Each structure stands twice: as structure tokens, then as C-alpha cells.
Simulated scan of single mutants.
Amino acid sequence: MFDVSFTELMLIGVIALIVIGPERLPKVARTIGHLVGRAQRYVGDVKSDIQREMDLNELSNLKGQMEDAAKSVKSSMEDATSSLKAPLDEAQKALKEASASVENLVDSAKADLNAKDSATDSKPEEFIPQPLTEPPTESANTAAEPAPETSEPASGDPDTLPLPGFTDTNKTKTGTPT
């Protein structure tokens, strides 16, 4: 703070020793030390208060920037939501129109069917779905009834089975290969 050199401090100490005297000089030095300490604490408190105010201003500026950023993100999200909502609304409207169209077609088909029924006065046959059955497996055939054995396969090759509707072109009408 003050630019005081060592020689200047020695000069002040010698003058204080002459003016105050050797008996009261330690008491005055102690009092001056307490006053300087209080002044330093006061200056430190003022510095910390100023620093807190500066930090508070920086925090409030930062808070303002964050609020602006949050507002811009919110507005962009609202824009994106509205841009996505428009096609969704159009799709829902088209779906409702298609549903209404299908319902009208079903109603007109029912009306046509009722008109045909009343004209013929006969009840149409009801379609009753039949359960699908799986073809019997080889183990089921052997358990229920043994398969008839043939002495010779139709195609002459023991590893192949003949396909229905196809004839072997290697055999002639007499049964001998050409």
C-alpha cells in the first residue's frame, strides 16, 4: 500500500523513541499493531464484499444467459413439436376419412346382401372354417397300417420317388429303356 523503505522505518522508530520514551514505546507499538491489524481486516472484508458483489453480478449474468438459452431451446422444441404434429394430425384425419369410407362400403355391402336375401328368400350358406390338419407322418403310417411293398420303384432309381403327373421319358411303351 504505502511505499516505505527500511531506512524510513528506522528513522520513524528513532523519532518515536525520543518523543514517546523508552517506557511507553512497547505499549504504543502494541496499540499501533492492533490498529494496523484491524485496518487490514477491514480492508480484507471490504475486498471480499466487493468480490462477492462481482461474483453475484457474474452469476446473475450467467443466470440470464442460461434463461435465454433455455427459452431458445424451449421455442425450438415447440417449433419441432408443431412441425411433427401437423403431419400427425393430417394422418389422423386421413385415417378417420378412410375409416368412414370403409364403414360406408361395409354398410352398402350389407344393404346389398340384405336386398339379395330378401329377393331370393333363402338363407345364404354360412362359411364355417375347418381346422387345418397336418398330413400323416411316416411313423403314423407304420403304426396304423404297414405300407405295401413294391418289388421295383417306378423310375428304376431306388433313391427317387415318382412325381404324380410326370412320366419317365427314358422308358418306352414296352417298358425297356431306349
Rank of each mutant, 00 (worst) to 15 (best):
F2T: 13
F2R: 08
V4E: 07
V4Q: 07
S5W: 08
S5V: 07
F6D: 15
F6A: 15
F6M: 09
F6Q: 15
T7W: 09
E8I: 04
L9K: 03
L9E: 10
L9R: 04
M10H: 04
L11R: 15
G13K: 11
A16V: 04
L17K: 08
I18R: 10
V19C: 10
I20K: 01
I20M: 02
P22V: 04
P22F: 02
V28L: 02
A29K: 02
A29N: 03
A29F: 06
A29C: 04
T31L: 09
T31F: 14
T31S: 10
I32S: 10
I32T: 09
G33N: 12
G33D: 11
L35C: 09
L35E: 12
L35A: 15
L35K: 07
V36I: 15
V36A: 15
V36Y: 08
G37D: 09
G37Y: 11
R38Y: 06
R38K: 11
A39Q: 06
A39G: 12
A39M: 12
Y42K: 11
D45I: 13
S48W: 04
I50T: 11
E53N: 08
M54N: 06
M54H: 13
M54K: 07
D55T: 12
D55H: 14
L56D: 05
N57R: 12
E58L: 08
E58C: 07
E58F: 08
L59S: 06
S60N: 15
L62C: 05
K63C: 12
E67M: 12
A69P: 06
A69H: 13
A69D: 15
A70I: 08
A70L: 11
V73Q: 05
V73C: 03
V73M: 05
K74W: 14
K74G: 13
S75Q: 09
S76C: 12
M77S: 13
E78W: 07
E78K: 14
E78H: 07
D79T: 11
D79W: 06
T81L: 09
T81P: 01
T81C: 10
T81S: 13
S82F: 12
S82T: 15
S82V: 09
S83N: 10
K85F: 03
A86I: 05
P87C: 00
P87Q: 03
P87V: 00
P87K: 00
P87E: 02
D89G: 01
E90A: 05
A91H: 00
A91V: 01
Q92G: 03
Q92I: 03
K93C: 01
K93E: 00
A94I: 01
L95P: 00
L95S: 06
K96A: 07
K96F: 04
K96H: 04
E97W: 00
A98V: 01
A100W: 02
S101R: 00
V102A: 05
V102L: 10
V102K: 00
E103P: 02
E103M: 01
N104H: 04
N104G: 08
N104F: 01
L105I: 09
L105P: 02
